[in-house]
């Protein structure tokens, strides 16, 4: 797989002495949607800021599309668009002026047709002459996205794009992210909403306390860690797990009133069928049953707890 962002042995210690990133290695594949998942203060923004040139790395190297972000900063930065976490815009500028400014800043010749297309896609075209301060928060967020797209980047960073954003904009944003991916743009988004990562991403990285603790294909991650549990409510409580049953994947709960069977969600359900028939041969009556599936959320909570 061709890697479009390559982070090697990256450390960041802020002037305050706080160590925000520790030995980060990360490869982002060309054309994927990568979700960087982590609790507040994990170092997501710091990592993105270093890649984009806003924060200096302490140790380590970063390459964007093969260009070193320090030595070849012009080529590296030209490829990247960034939508930062904080809403910061020039209040007194018009939407059109600010988007044109961004394009120029990134060294691109004016292209009104392209900018029009970007603004239309983000439902900003009607507002193109409005001053930014007259816009709602959601609209301002759209303006920030338009600015990031103004120079036709190959790599787009979205830092917590949907934090505090209404449902409509969130849906539009996901739509837009998918369209960009279709066009071959690589997208890296950070979030602490699991559902966002689950819905959008091809791959997921989990970062906690400045360390990347896991990078995995979303489907593999779900497979690997996605366990299902079958809860069986019993007629009569059990003292212990009856012999003859597969004891390893069974546990008793609620003083023996429930029997909990854990199994891989991608197994053919032979295990469940066997269990049920074994129980009935042993004369154990099941009153009720339900199953639960671990979501990314559970996986995430477990991972972060472990570290």
């Amino acid at each position: 797989m061709e890697s479009v962002i390559s982070v090697q042995a990256l450390d960041k210690t802020y002037d305050s002495g706080f160590s925000a990133l520790r030995n980060v290695h990360l490869d982002i594949h060309k054309g994927e949607i990568f979700a960087l998942l982590g609790p507040n203060g994990a170092g997501k923004t710091t990592l993105i800021s270093i890649i984009c040139g806003i924060v200096n790395p302490t140790v380590g190297t970063v390459k964007a599309d093969g260009y070193d972000i320090v030595k070849d900063y012009r080529k590296a930065r030209g490829k990247i668009g960034l939508v930062p976490q904080e809403l910061c815009t020039d209040a007194f500028e018009s939407v059109w002026a600010t988007v044109s400014f961004s394009r120029g800043l990134f060294g691109k010749a004016p292209n009104p047709a392209y900018l029009e297309q970007v603004l239309r896609q983000l439902s900003l075209w009607e507002k193109k002459d409005a001053k930014i301060r007259e816009l709602s928060g959601g609209m301002k967020r759209r303006v920030m996205i338009a600015k990031a797209l103004s120079h036709e980047p190959d790599i787009l960073f979205l830092d917590e794009p949907t934090a505090g954003v209404d449902v409509e904009l969130r849906r539009d944003m996901w739509e837009m992210v998918r369209e960009l991916r279709e066009r071959g743009v690589t997208i890296i988004l950070t979030t602490h909403y699991i559902e966002e990562a689950e819905e959008m991403a091809d791959r997921i990285g989990v970062i906690n306390k400045g360390e990347i603790i896991l990078v995995e294909d979303k489907s593999v991650l779900m497979d690997k860690l996605g366990q299902k549990q079958l809860h069986l409510t019993l007629d009569h409580p059990l003292e212990e797990i009856p012999s003859g049953l597969n004891g390893a994947s069974l546990a008793l709960g609620e003083g023996g009133h429930t029997l909990i069977y854990s199994y891989d969600s991608h197994d053919d359900n032979v295990g469940v069928a066997n269990l049920l028939s074994n129980l009935s041969t042993q004369g154990i009556n099941v009153k009720d049953l339900h199953s639960t599936e671990s979501s990314l959320e559970d996986i995430f909570v477990n991972l972060v707890k472990e570290h």
């Binding site: 984009c52 012009r74 930065r77 030209g78 930062p84 910061c88």
Partner: peptide, 13 residues
């Protein structure tokens, strides 16, 4: 205001 992020992230010397 924070808008300096854009200048810092742009390919400008």
């Amino acid at each position: 205001s924070g808008t300096i992020y854009e200048v810092l992230s742009a390919p400008v010397s």
